[in-house]
Design a protein around this nucleic acid. Structure first.
Lengths: 206, 206
DNA sequence: GGTCTACTTGACCGCTTGGTCAAGTACGGT
DNA sequence: ACCGTACTTGACCAAGCGGTCAAGTAGACC
């Protein structure tokens, strides 16, 4: 849309984004109508189309800002750390904290991947996340910290474990971010058979 | 619906299921209308409602039969094997072969998880899969093959790695099921740091 | 007080949707 | 040849959809 907004307008836009995020996440994108959104906020329909070009535009906006914010948080968390595995751990921990605060986004991204009109955007975002991770894995392989292999596949596996434990442990079971992050790292670092699998899933080596 | 079908009817029903699966997977559930389905098959709309109570009913049928079939294939693959880790490996390999033949189902299950009306069904199916896996992990922990920990979390992680590598390597990249299964097992067994991570991702210990 | 622009209203529109049904057709059994 | 039932047709429907817009309101700045 790219419209100049006054502070008041900015706030309305924020209300729409927040409410739509919640409705889309709990009811689904398609079953949630624009009418439902404006009624829920007690405003006229024109308000919606003042701030967004279309329902699809709104959804893309939610997706884009979410992905951007997560990446920002991860980069910030890694800070000045130079060791690749340590960087990865920091990013994973930060991600878990982030998901707790943005739980609705999980299901929205999952949905977006299943629809032809949104999938390309999601894939682009995931490509970035994969590349970020792949680079760290490759570095760790080069320095001999972890065994050689296909860095891309390994990175994908790490993302998979993070993703599924975020969904099932963090979001569904409501377990603390800290604990879940411990478990992600524990499993990714040592697997099932490998060395020190801490009983509480909390001890790591690196 | 539970209607008695002649062989001819059975075939029509199969056509509808197959075509709908393909359309839903590539175009999305909501954007694909019943009209599009019957037009695509060149039949009248009444045909659809002769075989299915509703569009939702059709979708649930696709989901249910898919999940049932995958589980059947896994159980068959494990056969008489008794070692828990070996059973797990057999199930993972069988799953990969299965996904190649039923690639459309992946995205359908993902979508179903995001919609209030379908999510409970999916969760039930996933609970079964998790319990199957958890039991194997627990057995392996009890026998000392793998280190102690929360079997449920570890099982979930294994499912996560299988799932994401199935999606990205097998379905998106089109790599052979055999190779992808190797990589799942390699990562799950040893993680990043743990012992023998084969260069080709193909050597395992157990 | 006037004016300009950011914002808001809600009736309205064209269109599509999932679903129905009275009427017909194909076909196996006798 | 005829009957019964499994199947097929497609016009039809109410409801809901995303989106528009002419008209109005509010508040910041002069």
């Amino acid at each position: 849309m790219s419209r100049r907004l006054t502070p008041r307008g900015e706030q309305r836009r924020g209300e729409l984004l927040a409410y739509a995020t919640e409705r889309f996440a709990t009811n689904g994108y398609h079953p949630t109508s624009v009418a439902e959104l404006v009624d829920g906020l007690g405003v006229g329909k024109g308000v919606f189309y003042w701030y967004f070009e279309s329902k699809e535009d709104l959804f893309l906006e939610i997706l884009r800002t979410g992905e951007r914010d997560l990446r920002r948080v991860q980069q910030e968390a890694m800070g000045e750390e130079t060791d690749p595995l340590a960087r990865m751990e920091l990013a994973i921990r930060a991600s878990m904290e982030w998901w707790v605060e943005h739980r609705e986004l999980y299901v929205l991204i999952e949905f977006a991947r299943t629809e032809a009109s949104f999938a390309p955007g999601v894939r682009k975002g995931e490509k970035v996340a994969l590349e970020d991770t792949r680079r760290l894995v490759q570095e760790a392989m080069d320095s001999g910290t972890i065994a050689d292999g296909d860095a891309s596949v390994v990175a994908q596996a790490v993302l998979g474990v993070s993703s599924i434990l975020a969904r099932t442990q963090l979001l569904a079971q409501g377990r603390p971010a800290r604990e879940v992050a411990d478990e992600v790292i524990d499993f990714c670092w040592h697997g099932l058979v490998g060395a020190p699998v801490g009983e509480a899933g909390a001890r790591r080596s690196a």
